[in-house]
Amino acid sequence: MAALSPAAAVPRRGGVARTDDAAAVVVRGLSAGYLSLIVLLPLAALLWTSTRGGIGAVWQTITIPTVLGALELTVGVSAIVVIINAVFGTLIAWVLVRDSFRGKSAVNALIDLPFALPTIVAGLTLLALYGPSSPVHVNVAYTRMGIALALLFVTLPFVTRAVQPVLIALDRDMEEAAAVLGAGSLAIFRRIVLPNLGPALLAGAGLSFARALGEFGAVTLIAGNNPLRGTQVMSLVIFGDIQGYQFSSAAALSFILLALSLAVLLVFGRLSRALSGHHDR
């Protein structure tokens, strides 16, 4: 009988929906309206303002030396931050899953701190300990190193939180099988564990890359606001433009930044899926 097939559940659910059709339409409209007024309309305005002068105008903005410098700095530092995140994020996830020591659950909770702590506070704390009045005599204020440190702070959870559940679910049998076949710890990690963490690692790395590209609060104090120091990342340049009412320039730069982070998310997402595609059960 057709009613017994799982597919039969679909039209029945549709029937239930029909009884409150009018209400559903109203709710749908309100929800879409809310999203439009708050998110979509402003983004449309941004796109319109940035591309009003055509792609040529956007290109012209990019080729301004200070902008080009900011772009290079932003992408460069973010890339380095992502690599460090990939290594340490995986290491921290490993220690949290496979190691056991007292206070482990506290350390586990600590990983979320950067998500909960306001970014301006993150920047300030780093500047207090590693700034001009550093008690340990390390001063990274107004340097690229300082920017990297701030970005590392705010993007810390992404890779760890992406890798952790996969590591928990990872079949220990595979590692044992590899050990019996003669693989040492390093070979097991490189040939068995890492390939299986790959998709999650890439997904986490992509998120932290996108976040690093656009970060503002954490870097604003550490980078300082002096274009001559060569520590102005894109978000700071855009902020400066907004403060000077240079909206069209700010919009063009925003467009570039937006395209960049979308591209990053797309590429990393694609890579992650390509890697996981063939061995999905």
Partner: peptide, 27 residues
């Protein structure tokens, strides 16, 4: 286990999911 020269077959196969059959056997 690496140095014992034994072969081990697992109940739940312990197949290396990210490798082909050929790569699994060649490991």
């Amino acid at each position: 286990p690496q140095k014992r020269g034994v072969g081990f077959v697992f109940q739940h196969y312990a197949a290396f999911k990210h490798m082909t059959v050929w790569e699994n056997v060649a490991f």
